[in-house]
Design a protein around this nucleic acid. Structure first.
Lengths: 206, 206
DNA sequence: TGGTATATGTTGCTATTGTCAACATTTATC
DNA sequence: GATAAATGTTGACAATAGCAACATATACCA
């Protein structure tokens, strides 16, 4: 979205900056992202972005927050079905999580890219991240209450699940999984979550 | 290691640069790393590092390679015991992997920090990464041969294990696991690998 | 309707960085 | 001991983040 040549005001610069940043991060990478570069592409002056974001980091924080918001929505879609057992739900959440990361690489990279290691500095970002994690935690807790998921610190079990899907997502996005396609990640996601569930289930005495 | 004030040559600048970079990445973060900053701290001119590294990326590549070398050594220590069952071995590899990441944050961050997404560009780095992964793969393959680990694409099973331990490592290093200490990660590592093994084991008919 | 405050954009500046080229000094080699 | 190679320095340029001062459009209010 380039500024109309003759108008002084862009009209929706804030939004345009965010979109352009997402495209940049998706097609190039986050480390090369520059506010001036974005401004140039949008046909505005090099300082125009500073009217909408106090600095580069604040743009990234905004994008990360949007990303967590969207992730939360994706995960909530899984729960909305309301026809799944707790185990199926956890599995479906895991698969959905990876699908989200694969489908929204720019968001996911910003959310977890070490550029924002200090989440504490941004309470609203911290809250957004925690809220999407809470969806998983509560589902696990329900499974525990129903007696189908192993007892133990719910948050810790949640960390294990989260680590798994985060690992798959990151390794895929950073191209560490050799010659992997979207389809093969999808397959990997199903395998990984299926295996994880076995570790989560209550064991029968044999 | 600062240069002796009166000597023209540093003596071991290449090594000093690497060490300084590791300290920087450990105490600050990778995105703020600068060659000029390192040179300044070492008391040499801003261009001295270019006699040892063609550019900033090549320094990072060197560090990443060293990191994979060291990781390989850590993992091989587990196999060296030679007293474990395949399942125990896989579990121990997972725990060791996370211990490595936690104990060598600078290495681990450089190895997986998205600054080097193009591993293909650096064959020796690519090779080093693949070699440490191979240790896991071969252990899983042995377990499959022994009939204790589930059948299936060995590499894919390896990806699942790797994703899990990578996820734990990254989330810890990027401070996403709230109020977690080294001890709590250690505990998390054991739980995660124990759960993973249950997903890997061959199922008895019940 | 007109006038002023506010939001939004621009221009120009400084400091920092990566990197190149040219030059200096030391060390190695024959 | 002379010359080549390795290592370090100085000085440049371009790009970037971000500040300050200024310009223009828009919103709002009497």
């Amino acid at each position: 979205m380039i500024k109309a040549k003759d108008s002084y005001h862009h009209g929706d610069l804030r939004h345009a900056i965010i979109e352009e940043a997402k495209i940049w991060i998706e097609t190039k990478d986050i480390s090369s992202l520059s506010l001036r570069g974005i401004a140039r592409r949008l046909g505005v002056s090099h300082n125009a972005p500073y009217r909408h974001f106090t600095d580069k980091e604040s743009l990234l924080v905004t994008i990360a927050e949007m990303g967590f918001e969207k992730l939360k929505q994706w995960l909530q879609q899984v729960l909305a079905k309301n026809t799944l057992t707790p185990e199926e739900e956890i599995k479906a959440l895991g698969v959905k999580y990876i699908e989200y990361a694969v489908s929204n690489p720019a968001y996911y990279r910003v959310m977890y890219s070490a550029y924002l290691s200090d989440y504490q500095k941004y309470p609203s970002l911290d809250k957004a991240a925690e809220e999407s994690f809470t969806i998983l935690i509560e589902t696990i807790a329900q499974g525990q209450k129903a007696g189908v998921i192993r007892a133990g610190d719910t948050r810790e079990l949640g960390y294990v699940c989260w680590s798994l899907v985060h690992g798959v997502s990151m390794l895929y996005l950073e191209r560490q999984l050799r010659s992997s396609t979207i389809e093969s990640v999808e397959k990997l996601a199903k395998l990984a979550t299926a295996m994880m569930i076995e570790g989560l289930e209550v064991k029968q005495e044999s």
